[in-house]
Design a protein around this nucleic acid. Sequence first.
DNA 1: ACCGTTTCGGAAACGGATTACAGAAAAGGT
DNA 2: ACCTTTTCTGTAATCCGTTTCCGAAACGGT
Lengths: 348, 348
Amino acid sequence: MSITIRDVAEAAGVSVATVSRVANGSTNAYPVRPQTRARVLEAIATLGYRPNDNARGLLLKRSGLIGIVVPDISNPYYPEVSRGIEDVAHANGYKLMFCSTDRLPERASAYIEALLLKRVDGLVIVGGGDEIQLSAATVATYDTKVVFIGRPSASFSTVRIDNVGAARDATEHLLALGHRRVGFISAGTSSNTVIERRRGYLEALKARGLEIDEDLIVDGDFTEAVGYAAARQLLLLENPPTAIFAANDRMALGAMAAVADLGLSVPNDVALVGFDDVPMSGYLRPALTTVSLAAQELGERAMEILLKDIEGRPGRRRVRVATKLVVRDSCGASAQSPAGRALKAPAA
Amino acid sequence: MSITIRDVAEAAGVSVATVSRVANGSTNAYPVRPQTRARVLEAIATLGYRPNDNARGLLLKRSGLIGIVVPDISNPYYPEVSRGIEDVAHANGYKLMFCSTDRLPERASAYIEALLLKRVDGLVIVGGGDEIQLSAATVATYDTKVVFIGRPSASFSTVRIDNVGAARDATEHLLALGHRRVGFISAGTSSNTVIERRRGYLEALKARGLEIDEDLIVDGDFTEAVGYAAARQLLLLENPPTAIFAANDRMALGAMAAVADLGLSVPNDVALVGFDDVPMSGYLRPALTTVSLAAQELGERAMEILLKDIEGRPGRRRVRVATKLVVRDSCGASAQSPAGRALKAPAA
DNA sequence: ACCGTTTCGGAAACGGATTACAGAAAAGGT
DNA sequence: ACCTTTTCTGTAATCCGTTTCCGAAACGGT
């Protein structure tokens, strides 16, 4: 059916060994004469030969594949991370196998298993959701390099941001602007990420000696729709918050819509801060104040770790990528410093 | 190093054939005694045996992989398409190899080549960009099933939407609201998709006997940043448009920001219509009027075609997925029909 | 106890590419 | 011309699962 190396060998009148040597950069130890090489290359071209990666992988014990598992492809944050991984992977001759679990445990484990069967050379697990349960013992059987992005681990390499600190800073920013009732739109307890962001929020309140009002903490699920509902719930309280901190930008967008639909305005009636700094956030009006976390860089760092591991310099590495509060208009701070509006000009 | 089927056989005191029969659903013709089966299963579990997919693929000539190539993972439209593909693929035991070309020709061809080397069982090429040049003769050498989403082809199966018709309807909608100067934010000539949308725009104007003002057509590139710049350029014309039709939602968002920054308002000063209906669009305020194109369904249809092809019922299939103009607030029509505001309640 | 079925398990071939080893051809030296 | 060295090419083993073909064991019947 498909063209094998033997077909090429026959067409060129040489042995399979010679074809192989031509196809890959011929080993210096076994050079191929230019005219022979030319004959082989011609045969490859005319037959349209494509070496079978299964056969290569079987023998070489490497697939040239990196597996990447993300919780939810429709959240723009993950594509950004993926792009970082992809850029570094591609530059080093690796290809990506990309899987989105949609936060479904069965799908998550099915995908991880499939990636292992494919003998990926490395595995990047993105996000801290509990749809993925990985004991160190389990991962130890994987026979591939593993790195986590945004998930704490005592045994494996991780690339993370300081969610607690960033959320604390974001909340403190609102408090510094004079807000005393700050709502928080959370997202369950299934994701480490959100748990940490919530902790940062609480720490900021405590640092100011404010007491925690549980009514001000509402559960979301990372989507606009639920952000909308959560904000609505907050704003319809007897004693509504004057500021809302949403655990991600998508929920912040939903919240912004809810504020508008209640006839209120951001930031005058309600200040709003998000988290992630996805591309759209700077183009909302009012532009969204949010925590920028260099998603692409997270991916790049993770892939670099993987490369080192693959090249035989293993070790548990832990990288922290810096975050930055991007102050735009939605928090109301720009009235004092118009420069905070990052996107007056289209240059992002 | 890693556990092979022979290790398992030895541990269980049986032959490799028996292990294989247990691991897969034992062929009816060669049953395995329950106690033997149990011994084997136990050995598999304790050793943590994972059959090598390279070896299987080599022998069985199938990889269980579907390759998918998208132009730009950061545009939310493509993740939606992917999810459609993924759902159907996953339900049928196929896994996805996902690649984003970032519209770079070298990367596109490198990825397609890599997917072919991996012997994917099927290939979905998404988008109509010219970074991918595929002659029928080239694809014919691929030795895998191929389906295009959003790219016309005389020789291969396609899943498409009626871009021309949808753009015509969207433009006509603006014209029906009384607009006579309607700007169009395009996106180069490299993508079929945008060429068709532009044609639809022009057809709508012609149908009304309006003459084309080239100044009203500005080039974008699918991103918010360039949408912003393009809208700004349009609105600063001596004779600016009263309505703008953007070739996708991301550019529409940029345009919305530009309108606001010029001290104008949507829809009162400028009516705005987008294309794609990405998740955020319903949560912008004003909510974005846009063309909804069932991205997920596109993916599902494509994958279904692939499955049929793989199962031995080949043939060139052409599927059209319906689009729908979702009238929200940004076009100014909702003043007449408040029901047009699709997202008063969070239920999307 | 013997024979004929049925049920199970094993040996071996196969898939396609890589590479160590050996052997052939060409080049170099006298 | 002949021998040594260098340069090239071919043979065959190997990677790991699957499956076909056979032989062995177990069972039932008489």
